[in-house]
């Protein structure tokens, strides 16, 4: 009888922890949700030997009524790639159709690549890292609370339980550190399939956009522990839920640059 009770208690506490973890991540997701968003940023790629490459770009995102995502990226610097633009639209099958406009060719080209788990625009971020938390195939577990200065961080473990997704992303788990006050992600540790620490993402310089009642980080630093490289995303501004014209996410717009 005692044993049964103990097993039930453990099961219940595990369930409670799982619920807690998922709930914390859900709050962060809610904070990040928007129907559309535009941001201008400088992307700094730092190689292993310390040399850097910088690019300035404007990223626009939109989620339509069918909950399909679309992104439009316009590069404004350096001069020789100015005008290059990238369009990604989620199709009905849930995959992304991608096009690139090179000013020198004066028309767009469709790019088809196996992007899952691959680098986003040559940075240390992958498409997975920047996408929304698609919780299928992931189990969230609340680990602990941590104090960082004046803020309390909720530490949640996101374990990839689906082997296919784990293989695609190259991750076995992530450890998320979420600020309990504003529900913003402060840090993420990414672990490879073999359990080794692959990358660390640090988010800082949070700013509150009162008109849309949203918090956003203005600095993201992704350190790749394996390649010894890092990418710094420095955001100039965010425009959240301002109603971006859906036509921005069309081929015609891409080619009219």
């Amino acid at each position: 009888m005692k044993t049964t009770l103990l097993v039930l208690l453990i099961l219940f506490s595990t369930l409670l922890n799982a619920q807690d973890g998922r709930a914390i991540v859900r709050l962060y997701e809610k904070e990040m949700e928007s129907t559309d968003q535009e941001a201008m940023l400088t992307m700094k790629l730092i190689s292993k030997n310390g040399s850097t490459r910088e690019r300035t770009l404007i990223i626009s995102n939109r989620t339509d009524k069918s909950n399909r995502d679309a992104s439009y990226i316009y590069f404004s610097a350096p001069a020789d790639i100015k005008g290059t633009a990238f369009l990604s639209v989620e199709n009905e099958a849930g995959n992304d159709d991608q096009w690139l406009f090179l000013p020198t060719l004066k028309r767009s080209r469709r790019i088809s690549s196996n992007e899952k788990g691959k680098s986003f625009l040559g940075t240390d971020f992958t498409y997975e890292d920047l996408g929304s938390e698609k919780s299928s195939g992931i189990t969230y577990k609340y680990l602990r609370s941590e104090q960082l200065g004046n803020i309390i961080l909720q530490v949640v473990e996101a374990v990839y339980t689906n082997p296919t997704r784990s293989k695609e992303t190259g991750y076995s788990k992530r450890i998320l550190f979420i600020n309990s006050e504003n529900n913003m992600l402060v840090k993420t540790e990414f672990y490879g399939i073999e359990g080794t620490l692959k990358k660390i993402l640090d988010c800082s310089n949070f700013e509150y956009y009162a008109d849309s009642k949203k918090w956003r980080p203005k600095t993201l630093i992704m350190k790749n522990m394996e390649k010894e490289t890092q990418t710094i995303l420095q955001f100039e501004y965010y425009k959240i839920n301002k109603g971006i014209d859906p036509n921005r996410f069309t081929l015609r717009n891409l080619e009219s640059n």
Binding site: D80, T84, T104, L105, R109, I111, S119
Partner: peptide
């Protein structure tokens, strides 16, 4: 050339740094 190399780079081509340096 700049745009072709950029295209290669952002399309996931990670060999570029093996042949030319950052700048």
């Amino acid at each position: 050339i700049a745009q072709y190399l950029f295209l290669y780079e952002i399309s996931g081509g990670d060999e570029l740094s093996s042949f030319v340096n950052e700048d």
